[in-house]
């Protein structure tokens, strides 16, 4: 009985199909908001779905000189990582499927699998744009990962637990964390943008410099699966931040309202910024991001002691 439950939760809800579908819808919303902010109509609602199906049915070209096994398996690892992370997160405002002490760390690192896979995929394809793209992707990973994790740990310290469900229970009953810990909120939000390689942190896939970055050589299925993974990561990241900083997600309606609101903020930020060079990105994270979060920690600790 338990096995069936596991399979259902992994394949359909909250992992699997639900996350993939919701990810695609959120991706559409993101594109639509950006398009509207640029005074145009933007894509239709089924656009990401059509894109995904089309890519899945396209021919997959394995370029010369790559390791074919790695080439095929890396997208799957990326998607699997994202889907696994979904199991520990209060998806759609419901209780997470699994939960144990310290699952926050596991979730955050499951999410990093995507970027790591992209980096490896780029290094595997012996193509110059891919190589530069993967170098940049990994450099960026090291830049934002620590501040992002530290920012997520802010509420955890306040709640006194590293278990997502306990933190969410704490944030639901207290004042919104984005008011108590504004610095942490901003860093987490921008960290999410870095993680998803959204503008202005899109230099790993900067179209005008290195074509499509690490994924330049991927066509068809591999590209589609990476896209799906990105979508899944978007929705998981949004859920985590709303759950931690915006008063938790107690039911699907609040979940929808809060995550969409957060997405609108993300989209507005994306459309207002110029792409940063990779050195500027790294400099910004370590010079400001990390220091600010540490400052936030200091404040939390001092407040708690007092």
């Amino acid at each position: 009985m338990e096995a069936i439950g596991n399979i259902v939760s992994l394949l359909f809800f909250p992992g699997g199909l639900f996350v993939i579908f919701a990810g695609l819808m959120y991706e559409w919303l993101d594109h639509k908001i950006i398009a509207r902010s640029q005074n145009r109509i933007g894509p239709r609602w089924f656009q990401p779905i059509a894109d995904a199906i089309k890519l899945l049915t396209k021919e997959e070209i394995v370029p010369d000189g790559v390791n074919p096994v790695l080439f095929a398996i890396l997208p799957l690892i990326a998607l699997a990582g994202a889907l696994t992370a979904a199991l520990y997160v209060p998806m759609a405002g419901l209780k997470p499927a699994y939960s144990f002490a310290g699952d926050l760390i596991v979730t955050v690192y499951m999410l990093s699998l995507l970027t790591l896979s992209i980096g490896l995929a780029g290094a595997n394809a012996k193509e110059r744009f891919s190589l530069v793209g993967s170098t940049r992707a990994l450099t960026q990973l090291f830049a934002y990962e620590a501040p992002f994790l530290l920012a997520l740990l802010g509420p955890a310290i306040a709640a006194g637990s590293w278990q997502i469900s306990e933190i969410v229970a704490y944030t639901e009953t207290h004042t919104w964390m984005m008011i108590l810990q504004p610095i942490g909120f901003v860093v987490a939000l921008i960290g999410l943008m870095g993680k998803l390689e959204l503008p202005p942190f899109d230099s790993p896939e900067a179209e005008t410099e290195i074509v499509a970055g690490a994924l330049t050589e991927y066509s068809g299925r591999g590209l589609a699966i990476f896209h799906l993974g990105k979508g899944a990561e978007l929705i998981i990241g949004l859920t985590l931040i709303t759950a931690f900083y915006m008063g938790g997600v107690s039911n699907p309606v609040w979940f929808l309202v809060k995550t969409v609101g957060l997405l609108a903020v993300l989209a507005a930020l994306q459309s207002l910024m110029t792409r940063l060079r990779i050195d500027q990105t790294v400099g910004m994270w370590w010079r400001y991001g990390a220091l600010l979060v540490l400052l936030q920690w200091l404040i939390i600790v001092v407040v708690q002691l007092v």
Partner: peptide, 14 residues
């Protein structure tokens, strides 16, 4: 657009 500022690109072309 080269600088990655698509909004400015879109508005100036509009």
């Amino acid at each position: 657009h080269e600088a990655g500022f698509d909004t400015l690109f879109m508005f100036s072309w509009r």
